[in-house]
Write a protein that binds this DNA or RNA. Structure first.
Lengths: 210, 210, 210, 210
DNA sequence: CATGAATGAGAATTCATTCAT
DNA sequence: AATGAATGAATTCTCATTCAT
């Protein structure tokens, strides 16, 4: 296995003794597998797909969690970046926001491990990648402030992303119809048009204020 | 084990009285544990908490799945019922809808296994309990038709519940603030006020139609 | 369960507190079950079929083995008796022998536990029932001495019974054809007609004596 | 476990050399244990005797049945081969047949799992090894046709092997005397000498035809 | 430094036997 | 004395991590 120059199952193996290439192979394979199956994957599946042995994998990442963290860091960053780019091209702040959600939900919401982890850590941003995402949202929030109903915060937008991301995962892969409707609904709810402001501070559990 | 007079975590060891008590202990413990940890729990943890031996547990529920199904069935039904009751007392159809969401999200959205299962099966209602929930939502949807923006379906409302349910799980237990804001946003997005209708049929992946 | 006068699954339950009846129920159920499934049966299956509780069963037979031994004792005796009776009616000693085998193989060779145990203990007759069977065979052997090739012993005839009994178990229940052919072959091999005698004493591992 | 330098029951722990050695250890240990105890063995016993951990065993054989099948396949083939070789050297077709039985019964009839499986599958030859054995018997049957009483089939000879194999298992290991006598008897019954033919086709349950 | 085989602590399930009622 | 629920050790199989080569 891992014959120099030949091709295993998926990835190419370091043709020479360059550890960095191996590391990349592992991360790439792990990203795929984590996206497909979430963090509960068997480490051996990752080793298999990356074309390296278990020993090599564990040399680079002494614990499964180390590898997972690394991959999530990277994938979160890619996610943030792709969504940010989608937002940049928009003609106005509101379009930027909607394009951001479109892209974020289309591109990465099927990444099981991403969503799994996003759900757990969106608020404390322990992962660098999540922090980036938060920064993007923060900027969008600021820029679209005029179109947004008053009181909407970055955390609101992030939680909405978590929430819709889950809706995406839960609906049929070939049918973006369902979650798109939900997105439309939510975005309309975020609009300034005639809606009363959201409460600015802590007033938990309040029923509708009328 | 199950020392007389002492108290385990939850129930008494039911010195013998009736097996029904044990069965209840098991279900109750399982409900707790499933709520906390989802369906991936170790069966032994359930046995431990209910104060019974493995054999007893397996006498009542020959397969782990039997126990899980029983608990989910029961908890889904309780969920549907509690949410329905909250809706009944409302003064108008719209209030019924909002109260329904309030209650549904407050009461059970922390139940990991419930949400886990809801996410997987909300659309096919294989579980009796989910079917009940769907019926409730269906009725609410019909009754609030005037207040809802045109085109909103039962499936939309259910997916919204899945989605917000996840948001609840993801936010701090002692702070309903965050998800409540999201609920407000979503409900406003569902309102008829000046919003264009949602597309009635298949028009997937459309950006905002304007 | 075990309602007086009513009928459970198979057996009747002791209508009054007569332990002897219970004991009989247990033995009869055990006999059935052991015949069907061999000694590896679940004790609960026996309790179920006999209509008594586990406690009662274990009161009568403190160990599974006690019950098994009792049943085997009884069934071996019945076996010996039925085979002996078949032999008694025969018109001559040789016919007695063949009728004995016919009956022995037809009647009990499907009794899994019997055959299982017969295989293990045929030579030391630890069980009373096996001893009876041996006595029957001994007598048949003596009476048919003239028709049997010289040197054939009771042990030969018993081992043949073990051996053919296995053949019966191994062949299709509805086709006695196969094992009947084997029986014919073996019986012919036992006949005096022109065959040299079997070695009288210990000459183990000898190839054909020429 | 598997202390270097010490010796378990059978093999060395194969310090690493090659997994093939371990695989062999496992198969060899399994063969022994299966021979001794039949297919109901505890997998751990096999792991213990081969000096490997459970994980190793399960790496090589993902299911208990895989291991059992592998061992049975191999041992059946060895059996068929050894018996066939014994038959080849014989001076005439009849001697070939008797030598075949001698060898078949001497070599493998103590192998519990072999006989267990042979009993279950002798007629449908699902296992490759059994098929080989059947082919050998078929050839012997054809070649010895002149010496055999008319009507004897391959199935008769196979069932006889099953039957005598059981007799071997049932008799004392150090005394081949007993089953050898039975073999002599059966072989004589198979001879053409003055015996009426066996019924060619279906005439089940017939008593002696006279 | 790479490899992938080996490890062994779990996790689900079964069943002889005990014991509270 | 009868009941059948409760017990828990034993059994098959999995997977993160280590280690010999």
């Amino acid at each position: 296995m891992a014959v120099a120059g030949s091709e295993g199952t998926t990835r190419r193996r370091a043709p020479r003794a360059d550890a960095a290439l191996n590391r990349e192979s592992i991360i790439e394979a792990a990203s795929q597998v984590l996206a497909e199956q979430g963090t509960a994957v068997d480490v051996r599946e990752i080793a298999r797909r990356s074309g390296v042995g278990m020993g090599t994998l564990y040399r680079h990442f002494p614990k499964k969690e180390d590898l997972v963290r690394t991959v999530l860091h990277q994938d979160f960053s890619k996610w943030a970046e792709s969504a940010r780019e989608a937002a940049i091209d928009a003609k106005d702040p509101w379009a930027a926001l909607t394009d951001f959600y479109e892209q974020a939900l289309t591109g990465y919401a099927r990444h099981s491990a991403i969503m799994e982890n996003f759900a757990l850590t969106w608020s404390d941003s322990e992962l660098e990648g999540i922090h980036q995402l938060r920064l993007v949202v923060e900027e969008l929030c600021t820029r679209a402030a005029d179109s947004l109903r008053p009181g909407v915060t970055t955390d609101d937008l992030l939680l909405l992303l978590v929430s819709l991301g889950h809706a995406v995962q839960v609906t049929d892969k070939r049918d973006s119809h369902m979650w798109n409707r939900l997105l439309r609904i939510s975005l309309d709810g975020l609009r300034a048009d005639g809606c009363e402001p959201l409460p600015t501070d802590a007033s938990p559990n309040t029923r509708r204020p009328l």
